[in-house]
Design a protein around this nucleic acid. Structure first.
Length: 481
DNA sequence: TGAAATGTTGGGGCG
DNA sequence: ACGCCCCAACATTTC
């Protein structure tokens, strides 16, 4: 039997349900990747994302080559391209792992129909999550909207099922490359219309595993405190790998739990807290599956102040936020880290999001969009869920008056300003005393450090105290009918 | 996975 | 010795 394995957001060999099934059932396998032309043309994602993806594909292609299989690639509209490839290669069956974004569900449905018309079977698999939305339901069968309830059910299910990752296909596969025994080299970023960009996170399945092993041996056991300090390497930084599927959540969770039984200094609470973050990921995936409309708007309309009207001031504020020159060092450091590396520390993501929504009073969807364009780990469900959480519009109750104080957060989590100094070089010479609120520096100190407010470093766009009061007052007014 | 305002308690300085 | 005030430290409430 001849099967196509359609690779999408699962660029790995280990614990790959679709690939494993194909290896079992077929004597001829053709792996295929389709560059989504409309998406690439729309410049929906930044050059860093495309570079990372190409890096992952390079490694995938060589891992497949070691097993005697050639990764085929096409460029076009994915649905039509896959259907056409199946016809060309006379495939009997197409394998792929499921996705849960509304638009992708729709598209995959069409592919399935078109294949059926040609007499080609389609087999799809659960991969992207440990448990799909339908597997975690409340007593009434309804989706759970509270994270705490969802987590309880999720862990119960984990204990019940105890998922075990699948092994990678062995090096000596009993399959033939068959009709597709050669392929042109993978494109370069320029071929896809993107600039080459520096990669700050190593792509590929091998790097993902190495990073996971490193994390699980050390930092995971101090995660509860370590995760809040952006200046240290205290988080797994695996999110880009989860996004492109160079690592499976089952593998990550199994290995994290496995670390509890070996080693001298292990911490159950820290390990579980880290896994909790992956459960959040599944929670948001489930919310998107159960309520697809969240992709385009708030889950619930809440009484929060209206966003600033589009206009000169808002545009100026928004641009300053994007470029990391708001005059709030921790916010600027975060945005510049994002712009430079395609990744931002999670504590800082919360700070910049709160700042955009509550201090600048700009609609959360603008922030959501910017993150999607610039984050290597951009995932519709997680990104949308977290922004809705910050904005107070999500499923999980979150009151509108939870407002971060940037200076306070900065002092708490970056006390020496190490993180700020790394990404905001003009503040590097400023002493720790002033680095969180440089605009409070006396002029003499500004001169001494060579960092004059309004010259080398911007004055604050808004006054946090006033912005906070304004936000709360406007919220109160709106509550009244 | 807030922050600020408000309340409570207890120690110490001081008249 | 005593009451009074101040303030830090902590807890609770409110936005």
């Amino acid at each position: 039997m001849r099967g196509i394995v359609w690779f999408r957001r699962d660029l790995r060999l280990a614990d790959h349900p679709a690939l494993s099934a194909a290896c079992e059932e077929c004597d001829e396998i053709i792996p295929l990747f389709v560059f989504d032309d409309p998406l690439l043309r729309g410049q929906t994602f930044g050059p860093a994302c495309v570079g990372f993806m190409l890096g992952c594909l390079q490694e995938l292609a060589s891992s497949l080559a070691e097993r005697g299989i050639v990764l085929q690639w096409r460029r076009g509209e994915p649905a039509a391209t896959v259907v056409q490839a199946a016809r060309e290669w006379k495939a009997d069956v197409v394998y792929w792992n499921r996705d849960y974004e509304p638009a992708v569900i729709e598209r995959d449905g069409q592919v399935q129909l078109a294949l059926a018309e040609q007499g080609v079977r389609a087999r799809t698999f659960k991969d992207h999550v440990v448990f799909e939305a339908e597997e975690i339901r409340g007593a009434t069968g309804e989706p759970l909207q509270r994270y705490s309830a969802y987590r309880a059910r999720w862990w119960a299910k984990w204990q019940e099922v105890r998922p075990v990752p699948l092994p990678a296909p062995p090096p000596r596969l009993a399959v033939k490359a068959g009709v597709a025994s050669a392929a042109p080299p993978l494109p370069l970023p320029a071929d896809l219309g993107y600039d080459q960009s520096t990669l700050w996170i190593q792509p590929g399945e091998r790097s993902a595993r190495a990073r996971l092993s490193w994390f699980v041996k050390g930092p995971i056991h101090t995660y509860v405190d370590g995760r809040n300090l952006p200046a240290i390497d205290g988080t797994a930084k695996l999110s880009p790998h989860f996004r492109f599927g160079t690592l499976s959540p089952r593998t990550a969770i199994s290995q994290a739990l496995g670390s509890l039984s070996k080693g001298a200094r292990v911490s159950r609470a820290d390990v579980l807290t880290w896994i909790d973050e992956l459960v959040w990921r599944e929670f948001f995936q489930q919310v998107l599956s159960a309520f697809p409309r969240v992709a385009d708007g708030p889950f619930r309309q809440v009484a929060v102040p209206p966003a600033r009207e589009p206009g000169s001031e808002r545009d100026r504020f928004y641009r300053a936020w994007c470029e990391g020159r708001t005059g709030y060092p921790i916010v600027d450091a975060g945005m510049r880290q994002l712009n430079r590396t395609g990744w931002m520390h999670n504590r800082v993501r919360m700070i910049v999001a709160s700042f955009l929504i509550k201090d600048l009073r700009i609609d959360w969807q603008s922030g959501e969009r910017y993150f999607m364009q610039h984050l290597l780990d951009a995932d519709l469900a997680a990104n949308n869920g977290n922004w809705q959480w910050c904005a107070g519009t999500g499923t999980d109750a979150m009151r509108g008056y939870r407002i971060f104080n940037p200076a306070l957060q900065s002092k708490k989590f970056d006390p020496d300003g190490q993180y700020i100094r790394l990404y905001v070089p003009e503040l590097a010479p400023v002493s720790s005393k002033w680095i969180h609120e440089p605009h409070l520096m006396p002029v003499s100190e500004q001169e001494r450090f060579g960092c004059r407010i309004g010259r080398e470093y911007p004055a604050p766009l808004v006054d946090h105290r006033r912005a906070r009061e304004e936000y709360l007052n406007l919220g109160k007014q709106q509550v009244r009918p």
